[in-house]
Design a protein around this nucleic acid. Structure first.
Lengths: 119, 119
DNA sequence: TAAATGGTCAACCAACTGGTTGATAAAATA
DNA sequence: TATTTTATCAACCAGTTGGTTGACCATTTA
């Protein structure tokens, strides 16, 4: 349900893409509206080439798509790719939380056996 | 509500920690139960030292915690840290999706003005 | 056509990553 | 005490990352 490469490769690229404050800022900006490279580069101190590289990292990770508008190459956020990441994380987070809740219940049961509250 | 460092630094470390298939496997394994370094290293071909390094990356990212049990140092998943990541992603994902839905409504309205279905 | 604008390519560099091996610390066990 | 088990530290290496500058392509505009 996505571009080329194994699941692992896509997750590698996507998580790596988000492991940089500049690229996270680009994602945040693009969540408000699509934008060109120049527009995206404006708020940053680094060169336009550096932003162009960041954009390529995001694109290869599938987190953004690009279109053509004359000489401009607008960038658009790809929410489905973000959703893949939260799904991956949540699968394991929810499993761990369920396990901890089960442990809490056992501890509570043990404690109420030591110090019964009724009976 | 978390260890040292700015939000950016913590997100950097956490996303970078997940941008590696070995470390994601460790997270998956730890979502089932806590485990020691030896237990975590067993399924992999790489050296125990390499796994120890991966564990340190996860720990510095706040994704796992460690305890003492004699000479063992069991690792435990930290679901709250995972939740921080999904929250970050979902904030921007949901904003973008809402924007796209709004655009869809506009397009639908335009189309029904061109080709009115009733009246 | 000439010039300006939007964006990328290529080469280079310092810093970091993930892996290795060997030595070592620290706790359990003989 | 001597040995084994668990885990980490230190040094090193090849490959990658994020940044730079300068040249270049492609499109719009004068």
């Amino acid at each position: 349900m996505q571009g080329t490469g194994s699941d692992d490769e896509r997750l590698d690229k996507a998580f790596l893409a988000l492991a940089d404050p500049v690229r996270r800022s680009l994602v945040a900006r693009l969540s408000r509206s699509s934008a060109t490279v120049n527009e995206l580069a404006a708020p940053f101190q680094v060169s336009k080439q550096a932003i162009s590289k960041h954009i390529q990292v995001l694109e290869k990770a599938g987190l953004i798509t690009r279109s053509r508008d004359g000489q401009r190459r607008p960038c658009h956020l790809a929410p489905a790719a973000l959703e893949e990441l939260t799904s991956w994380i949540d699968g394991y987070r929810l499993a761990a939380e369920a396990r901890f809740r089960a442990l809490d219940r056992v501890l509570a049961a043990t404690k109420s056996a030591d110090h019964p509250e009724h009976e």
